[in-house]
């Protein structure tokens, strides 16, 4: 147990205090004095190490800030390596449950996050369910069970419809309101994609007021929304470890594979915008993204700590 006595606090060293100061300053969106930071780093090789140690340290302690009210600790069974996800099975690998107190509102939001390569399903009290893909972060609210915010990643919502209290998903500054629905939402690289497999969804009712019905999707890129058509059968197929595409840029495929496999895969500029159509059974890749190369018509090589997708030479 921690001791709260008054022995000397292990104070930060001068270097640590300096590093802390730079972490705070460089963490500001207003920070512009990068040359000064660069000069500090170059002054001594120990500075970079101190800076990174401090940055990660702060992330660690910030992650321990207690939920209020206390969130229940998730104790679902953990599946390792290959969470091949089927139907209603739950693979809650490395899922993180974090709650916190909202500042000025009465709401009690809490975040649920999955690690890359993991999937999990959340069942809500009203019978609705949300399947989360890998590297996905959702914010739910204890006091408002009919709303969810997708901060990043991909999630499939199968919600119980209630016309008087429609389910609402917030994503990338937009709102999606269900009209009796199963739909998939993805938010990554500044883009939002929606695909409806059942019922209908209203995108930004009152503002853009776009109604998407079964078989329709939406792509929001650079503030511009475009309605697309989608194959109903493949909506949310990633839950069965199948990624299905119809003319999607390889940069996005790389992103999805990263989340599904728990690797860091990027498309280099030579192929990033190339369109891909087809489906990938991620379970068959057994964690090795290079096995997808022939299907995608590219080369996939390990480069440093990550994988790079590039033109076949």
């Amino acid at each position: 147990m921690a001791e709260h006595d008054d022995t000397d606090a292990p104070a930060l060293t001068a270097l640590e205090a300096c590093a802390l100061d730079w972490v705070v300053r460089t963490g500001s969106d207003a920070f512009e004095d990068w040359p000064a930071f660069h000069a500090w780093l170059e002054a001594d090789p120990s500075h970079a190490a101190a800076y990174h140690a401090m940055a990660l340290n702060i992330e660690d302690v910030a992650a321990t800030v207690p939920p209020a009210p206390v969130a229940s600790v998730d104790v679902r069974p953990v599946r390792r390596r290959w969470p091949v996800w089927t139907g209603g099975a739950i693979a809650a690998s490395l899922a993180l449950l974090v709650g916190y107190e909202a500042i000025e509102t009465q709401s009690h939001p809490y975040a649920i996050e999955t690690a890359a390569g993991a999937m999990r399903t959340i069942r809500l009290a009203d019978g609705s369910s949300i399947a989360m893909g890998g590297a996905t972060r959702l914010v739910l609210d204890r006091d408002d069970p009919r709303a969810a915010t997708l901060e990043h990643g991909e999630a499939m919502f199968v919600v119980r419809h209630d016309a008087r209290d429609p389910f609402e998903v917030r994503v990338g500054g937009a709102r999606l309101v269900d009209v009796g629905t199963a739909f998939d939402v993805k938010h990554a690289r500044g883009e939002t994609r929606v695909a409806v497999s059942e019922g209908a969804v209203d995108y930004n009712p009152g503002r853009d007021a776009i109604r998407l019905v079964q078989g329709q999707g939406l792509l929001v890129r650079g503030g511009k929304a475009t309605v697309t058509s989608v194959d109903v059968a493949s909506v949310g197929s990633w839950r069965d470890s199948v990624l299905a595409y119809d003319g999607v840029p390889l940069a996005e495929v790389a992103d999805d594979l990263s989340r599904a496999l728990g690797v860091d895969l990027r498309a280099d500029p030579t192929v990033a915008k190339r369109a891909f159509s087809g489906s990938i059974a991620t379970a068959k890749l057994a964690g090795d993204p290079a096995l997808a190369a022939p299907l995608l018509g590219v080369a996939i090589r390990k480069r440093g700590g990550h994988w790079v997708m590039s033109a076949r030479s």
């Binding site: 001791e3 963490g27 910030a62």
Partner: peptide, 20 residues
């Protein structure tokens, strides 16, 4: 002021973690 508050908060939390 925001920077100063964040510095204080980070520092207090890191020191508490070290004591722990």
């Amino acid at each position: 002021t925001v920077e100063g508050d964040l510095r204080k908060a980070y520092r207090a939390m890191i020191e508490a973690k070290r004591r722990y």
